[in-house]
Computed example of a mutant assay.
Amino acid sequence: MVKTAILVSGDGTNLQAIINAHNFGKIKNCELTAVISSRPNAFALERAKNAGIQTFVVDYSMFPSRAGFNEAIYQKLKSLDIELVVMAGFMVVLGSPVVEAFEHRIINIHPSLVPAFCGNGFYGIRVHEEALNYGVKVSGATAHFATAVADAGPVILQRVIDVREDDTPASLQKRIMEEVEWKILPEAVSLYCEGRLKVVGRIVHIKDA
């Protein structure tokens, strides 16, 4: 079983999607070992406790530098003997020493078709505002391996939905979350835990089951 830690910062809807998929046997060979939050009041912690998953808080606001925060995250992951890290609405870009120690072992979800509408400052509703302002006809979400550069790691899975004429940023955000994010993030976790992902350069190859 792959010992997995979920990093969260907020409400935890993507965490809940992972918990639900795991409970229904859709994520194979995975142990949900811990949920670690960068904010002590994140509702995601309650979701984890309700699911019987141990929780930890590494409060970003308590660290004078991002480097200190990253070191604390690294030490917590190391102490728990974590193999796979999943960023599920985690609002801090990870850096050294986490990304080096967990190369191709950190999965993130982003609510656009990377490399469109991604990178520093592109999170939450802004992603969908920019997509609609640009006039795209399709949008979606991307599950990818995280690196020290925001949303720049190798793509694992992408899925699209049509943009409707009457879409608002809020309606597009909701549909992408429900129809795409909540499906491809658990799927990407399962693919990793099943040993079906191989990274060659920037390309993620998915082995047949």
Rank of each mutant, 00 (worst) to 15 (best):
V155N: 06
V163H: 08
N120I: 12
T142M: 01
S65R: 14
I125C: 08
A188T: 01
I125P: 04
D11H: 13
V160N: 10
P97Q: 09
D59L: 11
R39I: 11
I184H: 04
Y134S: 12
A42P: 07
A101S: 15
S38K: 04
P154D: 04
A188I: 03
A67W: 05
K198M: 11
K28P: 11
G121A: 12
S171Y: 07
G140C: 03
V136S: 10
F90Q: 02
A188Q: 01
Y123P: 07
K174H: 13
P169R: 10
T55H: 04
V86Q: 00
T13M: 08
H205Y: 14
R175V: 03
V136M: 11
Y74C: 12
I184E: 00
L15Y: 04
R105A: 07
R196N: 11
I156V: 15
K76M: 11
R202G: 15
K198V: 14
L185A: 03
R66N: 13
E178A: 12
R47E: 02
M1F: 13
A146H: 03
V92I: 15
V200C: 09
I36F: 08
R159Q: 15
V149W: 05
Q173C: 14
V180Y: 00
K198A: 12
F63L: 10
T33W: 10
E178I: 08
W182D: 06
F24M: 13
Y192S: 02
R47L: 00
G25C: 06
D166H: 13
Y123H: 14
Q75K: 15
I156H: 03
K3V: 09
K49Y: 06
E194C: 06
K28H: 15
I18A: 01
V2P: 07
V99M: 06
R39E: 12
E46S: 12
A72P: 11
H110E: 10
S112T: 06
I18R: 00
Q75L: 14
G10F: 06
I19R: 04
E83R: 08
I206D: 07
R164S: 09
G10L: 05
Y74D: 12
Q173I: 01
A21L: 09
K183N: 07
P40M: 10
V85E: 01
L185I: 02
A42K: 00
A116N: 15
G121V: 08
Q54H: 10
H22F: 12
S38H: 06
G25T: 05
E179H: 05
V136Y: 02
I6W: 01
I161N: 00
I18L: 06
I184A: 03
L197N: 06
F102I: 08
A72N: 10
E31K: 12
R175P: 01
V189S: 02
R164Y: 14
G95T: 07
A44M: 02
H104S: 11
D162S: 14
F63C: 09
D11I: 14
A170V: 14
A131C: 14
S96P: 13
A141M: 04
R126E: 14
E165G: 14
I82Q: 03
V58P: 10
P186N: 02
V180T: 05
V8D: 01
L113G: 04
M62S: 15
A116H: 15
